[in-house]
């Protein structure tokens, strides 16, 4: 990573760059950025925990995002959130499944209000969702990944033999 300036204002862009590349901001990156910019670690930690965008733990392989905007709320987003949380076995304190496969993010309004309620699976935006549709999509995703994992396992075993 190259830094053209020791300017403090480069802190957030650098952290964003790390997050784009790694999916989260690991501790080593914080130490390194702190050393380059001469900003204390506690200061960076304060900035990281302030902004909703930053994660300090790795993100799941698949990301399910549910919009929490007003239009989505009045069109039933809370019921969809409940349904997806139940399917993935997550709750308010856990946003990523134990196997690290799925992360559920409740995101701020991303402005596709006319399609409310909206859910994004990986890069795919789905509008006019119902809890039932959401459950089906999540189950499909889980199944597809399980199949992939099984195939990978057989492949690996075949290679070992």
């Amino acid at each position: 990573m190259t830094v053209s300036t020791q300017d403090r204002s480069a802190l957030i862009p650098l952290l964003q760059q790390v997050q784009v590349e790694m999916g989260y901001v690991p501790r080593e990156a914080i130490d390194e950025i702190g050393a380059v910019l001469r900003v204390s670690t506690s200061d960076i930690f304060g900035v990281l925990t302030f902004y909703a965008q930053f994660r300090l733990t790795p993100v799941g392989r698949h990301q399910v995002k549910i919009c929490q905007g007003t239009a989505c709320h009045v069109q039933g987003a809370p019921l969809i959130t409940d349904a997806v949380e139940e399917e993935l076995g997550l709750d308010d304190d856990h946003d990523t499944t134990e196997d690290g496969e799925f992360t559920l993010e409740k995101v701020a309004c991303f402005g596709a209000c006319s399609l409310a309620p909206v859910m994004i699976i990986d890069e795919d935006t789905k509008g006019n969702i119902t809890p039932d549709k959401a459950r089906r999509m999540v189950r499909k995703l889980i199944k597809a990944q399980a199949k992939k994992n099984a195939a990978a396992k057989t492949n690996a075993e075949a290679k070992n033999e």
Partner: peptide, 21 residues
């Protein structure tokens, strides 16, 4: 000039933290 602690998190969860808590 030590900056050993800072404000961490936000809203009701705001707390004075050390690096990585």
């Amino acid at each position: 000039g030590r900056q050993a602690i800072s404000f961490g998190y936000r809203g009701f969860e705001t707390k004075i933290t050390t690096p990585f808590d």
